[in-house]
């Protein structure tokens, strides 16, 4: 956004933010979404206890077994894949990895974005111009294209994947942090503390950050599902998480080859992706409406 005190009715065109979302505010839907997120978190935390089999364990006599509710056996409730590996166990491990990646990347981009936003607000002038030009650049380039090139050429280490996904969405935090910091500095508490003689570290760490934390957290809930979708997309293309590790996206990618014979391999991870992004989006929208009317 341009100058904070100005009434700007919509984001500048160079920055195509996610369109505003307004979900129905049915508490029932939110409760369901919260329940789903809690379940996913539990699954991720207790993955080792919940897995019926090791996720790499082969069961060659039971290859491509359908799920229990499709004339399969309860030995493999969600069926098995082409090597007889248990789909449920792989799903549980995938949920854990996908959530870890998405969580790490979201934290990273929030940190980077907030820091850069503060830098822009503090120094103004050309530092601000650079940050905003970078933000425009980031918002204008399809992230998938950038990510594709970087990943394929630097290899597919998990750390790099998180780092790369951590660049997604930073510009939104940067804009928010910059705008709020500028307005806090223009006439508000930050200006007051500054004229008390406080150092910048104190102003931003002790005052500005706690004051804008709720807005940033709401933004995180809106970026998080996008990161999950990105990771799954990259993994689907074979350029994200690499075997033997498994994530929701690469389960779908590998399951695709058995679409006609064993659709269950990809249907369960696909359902988890959809449900999780849906649930986080619903909760994010709800949180935003509840906590933070400044974000639209």
């Amino acid at each position: 956004m341009p100058e904070a005190p100005l009434p700007v009715p919509s984001p500048p065109p160079a920055s195509v933010a996610r369109p505003p979302r307004r979900l129905s505010k049915t508490p029932g839907l939110v409760l369901f979404a919260l329940g789903w997120i809690a379940t996913m978190l539990l699954v991720a935390l207790l993955a080792d206890q919940l897995m019926p089999y090791a996720y790499t364990a082969l069961d060659l006599r039971n290859r491509l077994t359908p799920p229990a509710f499709l004339s399969g056996t309860w030995a493999h409730p969600l069926g098995t894949d082409e090597l007889g590996r248990d789909v449920l166990s792989r799903l549980i491990v995938s949920i854990r990895l996908s959530l870890i990646i998405a969580f790490g990347a979201t934290m990273l981009s929030a940190t980077i974005g907030t820091l850069l936003g503060f830098l822009a607000a503090h120094f103004r002038g050309w530092a601000e111009q650079i940050v905003m030009a970078l933000a425009d650049f980031q918002a204008a380039m399809p992230f998938l294209i950038l990510a594709l090139s970087v990943l394929a050429f630097f290899g597919n280490a998990l750390g790099l994947l998180v780092l790369l996904l951590g660049l997604h969405g930073w510009e939104r935090y940067a804009r928010i942090a910059r705008g709020l910091a500028i307005s806090a500095g223009a006439q508000g508490y930050a200006a007051a503390v500054r004229q008390l003689g406080a150092s910048s570290a104190r102003i931003y760490g002790r005052h500005v950050l706690p004051n804008i934390a709720s807005t940033l957290i709401v933004s995180m809930t809106l970026v998080f599902p996008e990161v999950i979708l990105l990771e799954s997309g990259l993994s689907f293309l074979g350029l994200g998480v690499q075997p033997p590790s498994t994530s929701l996206g690469n389960m779908v990618g590998y399951g695709r080859e058995y679409l006609t014979r064993a659709p269950w391999i990809l249907l369960s991870p696909a359902a988890v992706i959809v449900m999780t992004t849906f649930a986080v989006s619903v909760v994010g929208d709800w949180l935003r409406d509840r906590l933070d009317p400044t974000l639209r």
Binding site: R21, S232, G253, L266, A270, V274, F278, S281
Partner: peptide, 26 residues
């Protein structure tokens, strides 16, 4: 419309594409 819109955002294109293949092709 809103429900469809949310679904459109949360269903990744590779999932939607594969579902369409599963239904209309397979």
């Amino acid at each position: 419309v809103m429900l469809a819109a949310v679904a459109g955002f949360t269903v990744p294109s590779f999932v939607l594409g594969l579902l369409l293949v599963l239904i209309f092709a397979v």
